[in-house]
Design a protein around this nucleic acid. Structure first.
Lengths: 147, 147
DNA sequence: GTCACGATGACAACATGCTGCCCATAACCA
DNA sequence: TGGTTATGGGCAGCATGTTGTCATCGTGAC
């Protein structure tokens, strides 16, 4: 069992994922930098923009798989920066909805203009099949761990 | 170009990787918990154990792709906890070598006893080929970003 | 031998994530 | 309707990562 080829393969993969994560955060910071954002805010603004209607802070946290406190801190800063605003939630008295302001919409558009070419550029030499297999594997692992 | 299937695939993959990273850290914390470790110390002790001779703090940082300051803080705590010790480096007057103490060796062995079954268990339903493709892709991305 | 540059150590500031705690509100069920 | 459970908000503390700065040590070119 100790000689299982999968064992070492998986542990190598995990260590590599830790490293890749750090590099991806750095990439996000680099791309978002010129727009006055950071990678954490990049993640949050992406979720809000994709949800066409308003979303709550814990809702964003669930999508990202993070704690609501972590997201709340980000949104508070972005609200102070005028990128988003809190809106009354007709369905819930205390839990407000988060929406992009016009300024936030503009920033998101500018972000896409950097992010999309980045994504295409970094997959130029990668076959679609490999991307699909990797994504499928990552999602399977997420399901295994997310309980 | 905006309709490139790879673009969305890659962005989905990146978001999933952020999430998986958080879950993996939590898994590491869970496994290391009973040994008085955390996932960060788990990473560091692994590097030291694999390097049969002593390694320097910046050396560990290079292996992990992290800043030497982050590693230094971890090793300082682990040294205070008696898991490792600093040893004179014959090749360098200021940069000490980091070695596992007997206690550190024991903890690492105990760690393996948890970690290896964990690795095997979590790849039971995953074909080796998919693991290889995913690892290859992750390494390719690391090389692209690590400059 | 000297000097410039790179690597290391030490300290500080900051960003981002986590958990724990307490309280308020919503939702659900008997 | 009333009580229990789930969800959300806010605060605090902590772990882990980053960057920046400065002094010191090593290395290598001249």
């Amino acid at each position: 069992m100790a000689h299982s080829p999968k064992r070492k393969l998986f542990l190598d993969l995990v260590l590599s994922l830790f490293r890749l994560n750090g590099l991806l955060v750095a990439e996000g910071d680099r791309m978002a930098e010129s727009l006055g954002l950071t990678s954490a805010r990049w993640k949050v603004i992406g979720v809000i923009a994709l949800a066409h209607s308003g979303v709550t802070v814990p809702g964003i946290a669930r999508v990202l798989g993070q704690s609501r406190q972590a997201v709340q801190r980000i949104t508070d800063v972005m609200e102070a920066d005028g990128l988003l605003r809190y809106q009354k939630n007709p369905d819930h008295k205390r839990s407000v909805l988060v929406c992009l302001t016009d300024s936030g919409q503009e920033v998101y558009s500018a972000l896409r203009a950097v992010q999309d070419p980045w994504a295409i550029e970094n997959t130029e030499t990668v076959p679609v099949e490999e991307l699909e297999i990797a994504l499928q594997l990552v999602r399977r692992l997420i399901n295994q761990f997310d309980r």
